[in-house]
């Protein structure tokens, strides 16, 4: 999810039911082909024009990535039929090339190693917190929750510089060192994992809380009566029931981390740079080498696109967060 900033705004009850109804209608219409088409021909044509406009740039990139470099530079990709040519060499060149500090192939592996843990950690930590916000009454609960919510809108730029120095130098009050710094060295994913986990928490807590707080109270109470403590209620009742929300957040976070550039530039130095960072480097150094840029960009896109198309339903549900149940 490159684009939508990871936030989830509060919607009122009316909008919620409306979006819920709409989302159900979307899912129904996939089952039953709507009989009467209510739209006019003109609208459909306009829609198709927009769809073509929106898709053409990506198509151009995809076609170009398979053309030999000398053809790329002498003819437009739209003339593919008059200047035919096909090669996989661009992919080979960019994956094993030495134009950057880390090869794109290595950075692809880095992206996987960064993304999987960074998607799981906030999920677990946030679902614990969301449970407490939803089902353990305590003083100051609302204030604290609103604070968490407000944090998801605060630009992470505010936190970057101090967090970096915290990782590097630790924390001291006066001369009294409380925490010595991460000291994990330049080749560790530790910094990026922790940074992504922290930045994802506000959204994750808010999104999961919306869902977890709507689990029927009777279910929770029945578990209590059967002798389950909060630990078991959480693990055996709430977690399984919250799976749809957890799945949509996991997809969000996966796409967000995979596509992120800012956190990577600040916290993933040298050998652990993910694919977005290496791509930016190629854009900077070899900005006119389109055979590298197009194939590299496509390699970076392929994983999120697969995730996106395979799990589109959950993704859309997550966007309409909290508004659709189950």
């Amino acid at each position: 999810m490159s684009a939508v900033a990871p936030i989830d705004l509060p919607v009122d009850q009316k909008t919620k039911t409306q979006l819920g109804r709409g989302a159900r209608a979307v899912e129904r219409s996939t089952l039953r082909k709507s009989k009467a088409r209510l739209t006019s021909k003109g609208a459909t044509i306009a829609a198709i024009v927009i769809a073509i406009l929106w898709t053409t740039p990506t198509l151009g990139l995809l076609i170009t990535s398979f053309r030999p470099p000398e053809l790329i530079n002498t003819s437009g990709w739209w003339s593919i039929f008059t200047n035919p040519g096909f090669t996989l060499g661009n992919y080979d060149a960019v994956l094993n090339g030495s134009a950057t500090t880390v090869s794109l192939g290595q950075s692809f592996i880095n992206s996987i190693a960064i993304t999987l843990p960074a998607a799981l950690f906030p999920l677990v930590i946030a679902s614990l917190a969301a449970y407490a916000f939803a089902w353990i009454p305590f003083k100051g609960r609302n204030i604290l929750f609103i604070g968490v919510f407000a944090l998801q809108v605060v630009p992470i730029q505010m936190a970057l510089v101090p967090l970096l120095s915290l990782f590097a130098r630790g924390l001291s009050i006066g001369d009294f060192e409380i925490f010595a710094g991460l000291g994990a060295g330049g080749n560790s994913y530790g910094q990026v994992w922790i940074a992504h986990t922290i930045f994802a928490l506000p959204l994750a807590i808010f999104l999961l809380h919306n869902f977890i707080s709507e689990i029927p109270q009777e279910l929770i109470e029945a578990a209590r009566v059967d002798g389950a403590g909060h630990g078991q209620t959480f693990f055996r009742i709430v977690l399984p029931l919250a799976m749809p929300a957890i799945a949509s957040f996991a997809i969000f976070q996966f796409l967000w981390v995979w596509n992120d550039l800012l956190v990577a530039l600040v916290f993933a130095d040298g050998a652990v740079g993910p694919i977005t960072k290496v791509l930016r480097e190629i854009t900077g150094n070899r900005g006119q080498d389109w055979y590298l840029l197009t194939s590299g960009a496509f390699i970076a896109m392929i994983v999120p696109l697969i995730v996106f198309f395979a799990l589109q339903r959950f993704f859309v549900r997550g966007l309409l967060a909290g508004s659709t149940k189950g």
């Binding site: 999810m1 990506t58 791509l279």
Partner: peptide
């Protein structure tokens, strides 16, 4: 939406 800003920028 599934494409990174870096990818979109290159496109």
């Amino acid at each position: 939406m599934a494409i990174s800003f870096v990818g979109a920028s290159i496109i």
